[in-house]
Simulated scan of single mutants.
Amino acid sequence: MTIVMEENKPNNIKKFLNFEFSSEEEKEAFIESSETYSEYKDIIELFENVKSVDYDKDGALEKLDHARLKPSVNKKRVIPWQKKWLPMYVAATVVLFVSVVLFNIKNNLEHHTLAGEFTQISLPDASKVWLNAKSDIAYNKKWEKSRAIDLKGEAYFEVAKGETFTVKTPQGTVTVLGTKFNVKQRHTSFEVYCYEGRVSVMYNGKETILSANNFFNSKALDKHIQTTTSVAAKPHWIEKMSVFENTSINDVVSDISIQYDVEFNMNNNLNKDLKYTGSYHYDDALETVLNILCESLDLKYVKKGKSIYLNKK
């Protein structure tokens, strides 16, 4: 990119970046009158906040100085190139880093939800995303070039037909052309449920193809592909409900903690293989949810602030 400087002020940007203005008045005059400053305002102001880069110049160059050029016969002083150019190199590196950060910030769109929240997002191609509680997605503004989303947490997708649509999570990747599916990535768990069409799931370097009413569970010991007998048009959480069918106690309390922003502590004597079948609505009071859970599994609980302590009766 060519930077066009104001007439008679070719060194102003350089002076600004090197903090060489003779006074605050000169600096303010440059900021108010400079078109160049306005064009690169974000990068210049971020660079100004850096002020100076701390580095041990003498220590870093100690070994290099041993190999510096010896003075010539006429005793003319030779300045080692490292000392002459390293500060400028460091400054240039900072500018480049700031530029890259600004580029990514300006070209990415992000959506976040807190505990107990969920939201619906419409994508540029008319695809729709429902984002569950405590989840994050990010994608590039130039959506037409690559239909790709980064996901942490849980989201349900209704994908418009078109080019390949990819959902990337820290544990696996889901690829489709046009379909309806749910992706859940929590801690060490990775699940994909296909509601319509077909989806490709890439996990640990192995591809698995799911068709409608099939789901993938990374925790399954015998096989990853499973079929459900419960046919639903969408995930229950979109209707503000969590439904469990012979679900481990760990997964149940994890789900409750996400919706109610609490932390569970289970006594060491508690059977971690307990399974729970039931449901709750997100509008239910936390105490109601806990009472039903404990009554079903013969447990008791103590609530202290945002901590829930579970134990056997």
Rank of each mutant, 00 (worst) to 15 (best):
M5T: 14
M5L: 13
M5D: 09
E6T: 07
E7H: 09
N8Y: 02
P10K: 09
I13K: 06
L17W: 06
N18Q: 13
F19V: 14
F19L: 14
E24G: 03
A29G: 08
I31A: 06
E35G: 08
S38N: 15
E39Y: 11
I44D: 08
E45V: 00
F47R: 07
F47I: 05
S52F: 13
V53Y: 04
Y55R: 03
D56C: 06
K57D: 07
G59W: 05
L61K: 10
E62S: 13
K63P: 04
L64W: 10
K70L: 12
P71V: 12
R77L: 13
R77Q: 11
R77T: 15
Q82R: 07
W85I: 15
W85E: 14
L102W: 02
I105K: 15
K106N: 15
K106V: 08
K106F: 10
N107A: 07
N107M: 01
L109V: 13
E110A: 14
H112W: 15
T113L: 03
A115F: 11
A115C: 03
E117D: 08
F118Y: 14
F118I: 04
I121V: 01
S122A: 15
L123C: 09
L123Q: 00
S127D: 04
L131F: 00
D136C: 11
A138P: 04
N140Q: 13
K141M: 02
W143M: 08
I149F: 09
G153M: 05
V159D: 01
K161Q: 02
K161T: 06
T164K: 13
T164I: 12
F165P: 01
F165S: 01
V167W: 11
V176T: 02
L177T: 01
F181Q: 04
N182W: 00
K184P: 05
G197L: 04
N204E: 14
G205D: 02
T208K: 01
S211V: 08
A212Y: 05
A212C: 04
N217W: 07
N217F: 05
S218L: 03
S218D: 00
H224G: 10
I225L: 09
T228A: 04
T229N: 15
A232T: 15
K234N: 10
K234D: 02
K234G: 06
W237H: 06
I238M: 12
I238V: 09
S242P: 06
N246R: 10
V252G: 00
I258D: 11
Q259F: 04
Q259M: 10
D261L: 08
M266D: 00
N267V: 05
N268F: 14
D273Y: 11
T277G: 01
G278Y: 00
E287R: 09
I292H: 07
E295P: 09
Y301S: 05
V302G: 06
S307Q: 15
L310Q: 03
K312W: 07
K313H: 12
K313F: 10
